[in-house]
Every structure is written in structure tokens, then in C-alpha cells.
């Protein structure tokens, strides 16, 4: 059996982290290729539903990253996001979803190296956690087997 390769989805803001990831690229810093980056205008736009959708679509881990405090392009988007994540993380804990699978970070446009480290660290952490089997075990499509017709 081949080694488990985690799938990581990164939700990043356009102004800092995306530029930071770009810098990592132009600086030829090598980092794990498990990450798929989704660019958003601001971390304030990153709704919790998007994180849930990523898990549903098969992500094993999620990175959410944006501008450092006081650096937000829209002044306060990252502060709002920070509060929302705090609360959302607690909800995930309460429901029993491993909140270590979501990594929050601030990466500025100048921090290409930090981005590379962040991705590498996350990949190795998620590799240790193993596949997101909780979500994968939830069969989405309903089955027609009788007995399961009764919701139980």
C-alpha cells in the first residue's frame, strides 16, 4: 500500500497570503505539493461553510491564512475572521471533528518562506493524523436498502 498523501485545501486572502505563496514560488522555495490554493478577496470572506465543503469534497486538512493583524487590505476583515474561527473551532471540537485539521495562520506577502514552512508542517501533521475518515465514512448518497429506509 502506498503511503497516505494528504489532500490539503488552502483558503487564502488575495492580498497577503496569496502573494506570499506567489513569492515562495518565484523564490523557488520547494514545498509539499499536497496543497490546493483557493484565493479569496479577504479572510473575512471565508465562510465556515466553505471549510465544511472542503472536507466533504475529500480534503484531509485545511489551511486558512490571511494578512497579519493591522495589515488587512480592508482594514478589519482578518479581525472579524479571527473571531469567527475561534468560535468555529470550538464548535468543531464539541461535535468531535478534529480541529487540528484546520490550521489558521497569518502569512504576509513578504513571507514566502513562512508559507512554505506552513504547508510543509501542515502536510506532515495531517500525514500523522491520517485520512479524514470521519467524513469519508459518512456516505452521502442515500441507500435504498430496506431497513435503512427507516431513518435510524
Amino acid at each position: 500500500m502506498s503511503e497516505f498523501e494528504p489532500k490539503i485545501v488552502a483558503f487564502v486572502c488575495n492580498w497577503c497570503t496569496y502573494a506570499g505563496a506567489d513569492l515562495a514560488g518565484t523564490s523557488r522555495i520547494k514545498y509539499a505539493q499536497n496543497v490546493r490554493i483557493v484565493r479569496f478577496p479577504c479572510t473575512g470572506r471565508i465562510d465556515f461553510m466553505l471549510l465544511l465543503k472542503a472536507f466533504e469534497e475529500g480534503a484531509d486538512g485545511i489551511i486558512v491564512s490571511g494578512c497579519h493583524p493591522a495589515d488587512c487590505h480592508y482594514t478589519s476583515g482578518n479581525y472579524h475572521a479571527r473571531r469567527r474561527w475561534m468560535v468555529f473551532k470550538d464548535l468543531l471540537d464539541f461535535i468531535g471533528i478534529d480541529s487540528r485539521r484546520i490550521v489558521f495562520s497569518w502569512v504576509s506577502a513578504a513571507e514566502g518562506a513562512k508559507w512554505a514552512h506552513l504547508v510543509n508542517d501542515t502536510v506532515s501533521e495531517i500525514r500523522n493524523l491520517g485520512p479524514m475518515k470521519e467524513y469519508k465514512n459518512l456516505e452521502n448518497v442515500s441507500s435504498n436498502k430496506i431497513g435503512e429506509l427507516i431513518n435510524d
Binding site: 448518497v141 442515500s142 441507500s143 435504498n144 429506509l149 427507516i150 431513518n151
Partner: peptide, 10 residues
Amino acid sequence: KSVLFPRSDT
């Protein structure tokens, strides 16, 4: 009724 007509039926 769900034995005939389940909540979600493929």
C-alpha cells in the same frame, strides 16, 4: 410510510 416511501429514495 418510509418502508414504501423513504425520506430520501434513490
